[in-house]
Amino acid sequence: MLKRFSLLIMLCILATPVSAQLQLFACEPEWAALSQTLGGERVTVYSATHALQDPHHIQARPSLVSQLSRADLAVCTGAELEAGWMPLLQRRARNPGVQPDQPGYFAATDQVSLLEIPQQLDRAAGHVHAAGNPHIQLDPRRLEQVAVALSQRLQRLDPAGSPYYQARLNQFQQRWQNAIRDWEQKAIPLRGKRAIVHHRDWIYLLDWLGIELADTLEPKPGVPPTVKHLQGLSEQENISWIIHSPLNDKRPAQWLSERTGTAVVELPHTVTALPGTDDLFSWMDQIITLLTGHAK
């Protein structure tokens, strides 16, 4: 009986790691989408968060421990965006391959230059990240840099699939560069316009499109809008949009809009955040369409 049982266990152990696919653990939906685009059939991707969860406030829940324990590669934003849960998961998951110094851990913000690196670290300034603003996914140029580095990482972890990954990267880059040219063309009329945003996660988008950040609805990063602060904002002039994401409370933006007549635009901060934004292309398409549609 015991012999048969141990045989069964042996079979189970032998049966599980045969699959040739890389198991990817993506911290946010945009990196899940990018990983799937670059990895194609050679990867299976698990997204730790969905679009309507704030990646700042995720708990190290049991399913995440389980998923990370089986992962070959964790693809995260880094720059302390996941500071509350990734280090804990990395310890709990008992997976030597995905520790911070290992090739199995990939931080997107390590691959690009960051904006808003604070000169002075003081939490009185709100929820600031010491490494800089981590919300880089909203700049397609930076996203492309991340894609190149991520493809290299996939090729390093799965050398047999190197030509496959390279071909997919080339294909992606070609499409993406064309798309960027198209978006930039469409966004030329937006240059120099001014926007008020809810949280500072939009700075990379605004930086890319040449839109001026007039102010934020949050008085400080992570601090909810106050009436006094909003009243101050209502005196701002020449504002084209009040931008927020589906994650944010809609009321402050609407309050301000009612007083100033400025259009409120709900923009998808990541893929799948709004209907019709299932992949990276349609997502960025929708952002540009919404911005140009509401520009005045």
Partner: peptide, 10 residues
């Protein structure tokens, strides 16, 4: 609390 960012334990 101040100093390092706390962990979000489940």
């Amino acid at each position: 609390s101040f100093g390092a960012h706390g962990a979000h334990q489940y």
